[in-house]
């Protein structure tokens, strides 16, 4: 569904990514794990068009179409939604309006079915429908950010650190919901610092270190890998 080939990205003179190549197949959950500053978020931002690769031989293909260099809103229209790091809900808008904004890229008004789909995964959002998004708790904001992305009916959902700043109980809940969304037919690419949980729910994973992919494989293999256990699972 999504392939990246030899992506380089630089912030000014600092190179953040060196030749990243990865693949996400239809129906999978793929995790991208690594330490702070490894380039995980940069990778996601490049996929969704917020950043541009610096080399010409790089290639990003989504549903067999080259999306590299396309504007972010065009990429969303193609069915790729990005839940940015730190949730980034629209604080002065109500939960309902936030969800409505999520459907902005689609022609015509979103139907009740779209809202119901979001409420099915996040019943708590339905209770808070009129509340301003800025007054929600961190976990609820994360749910809203994901719900907002679902409103675009994406085929591929990319999530940046969904567990950031959340209580352990909530993190578990969010991860269960991610699995549910995947079962309901959405492919997921996930960036996560909590490698343990990420490997638990994903099919495959890539390990990023200072802008390069150092390891890739099935999630359960990585979870038992000695180096990984030492470096990322704290054992």
């Amino acid at each position: 569904m999504l392939t990246l080939e030899k992506i380089n990205v630089s912030y000014g003179s600092i190179r953040a990514l060196h030749g990243i190549s990865l693949e996400v197949k239809k129906g999978e959950i793929v995790a991208l794990i690594g330490a702070n500053g490894a380039g995980k978020s940069t990778t996601l931002r490049t996929i969704s068009g917020l950043l541009k690769p610096s080399n010409k031989d790089s290639r990003i293909t989504f549903k067999d179409v080259q999306i590299q260099g396309m504007l972010p809103h065009k990429i969303v229209e193609m069915g790729l939604s990005h839940v940015p790091e730190g949730r980034r809900v629209f604080p002065e808008m109500s939960v309902y309006e936030n969800l409505l904004m999520g459907a902005h890229s689609r022609k015509g008004k979103p139907g009740q079915a779209d809202f119901d789909r979001v409420y099915h995964h996040f019943p708590r959002l339905k209770e808070r429908i009129k509340q301003l998004a800025g007054t929600l708790s961190g976990g609820e904001q994360q749910m809203l950010a994901m719900g907002r992305a679902l409103m675009a009916r994406p085929d591929l959902l990319i999530l940046d650190e969904p567990s950031m700043g959340l209580a352990p109980m909530l993190v578990e809940e969010i991860f269960h919901i991610i699995e549910d969304i995947n079962v309901a037919g959405t492919t997921i690419l996930l960036v996560e610092q909590n490698a343990h949980l990420a490997l638990e729910i994903s099919n495959r994973a890539y390990v990023l270190e200072t802008g390069e992919i150092v390891l890739e494989g099935l999630a359960q293999d990585l979870a038992t890998n000695e180096d990984i256990r030492k470096s990322y699972l704290g054992e």
Binding site: S48, G49, L50, L71, P72, H73, V76, E77, S81, H82, V83, P84, R88, V89, F90, P91, E92, M93, E97, L100, M101, G102, H104, S105, A145, R148, A149, A152
Partner: peptide
């Protein structure tokens, strides 16, 4: 729809592009 998109840009420009608003 246009007005809401403008408001979203004020609220958070990155999130606006991420939900598919043509900020330009």
């Amino acid at each position: 729809r246009n007005g809401r998109a403008m408001l979203a840009i004020r609220e958070d420009e990155v999130a606006s592009s991420a939900v598919g608003i043509n900020t330009t």
